[in-house]
Amino acid sequence: MSVIYLLISISIIIAIGFFIAFIRAVKTGQYDDDYTPSVRMLFDDELKVENPKPEQITEEKQN
């Protein structure tokens, strides 16, 4: 039954891993603006579906 020490330790370590991920997310500012990303996410899709060409055109222009 002493395997419980191992299991609990692993679970705590995993939890700490997630906790560190959370701290990093806050630090990089992911929680500062909780509105814009929700809108931005929708644009990417529409761009790809509707206008696959324009991006190539701009690239050509830049070249």
Partner: peptide, 19 residues
């Protein structure tokens, strides 16, 4: 400097509370 300490504190408290 954006003060994010409340978010951190809340996160820490939730982590401790849950476990």
């Amino acid at each position: 400097n954006i003060d994010r300490s409340l978010t951190y504190k809340l996160g820490v408290a939730f982590f401790c509370f849950g476990n």
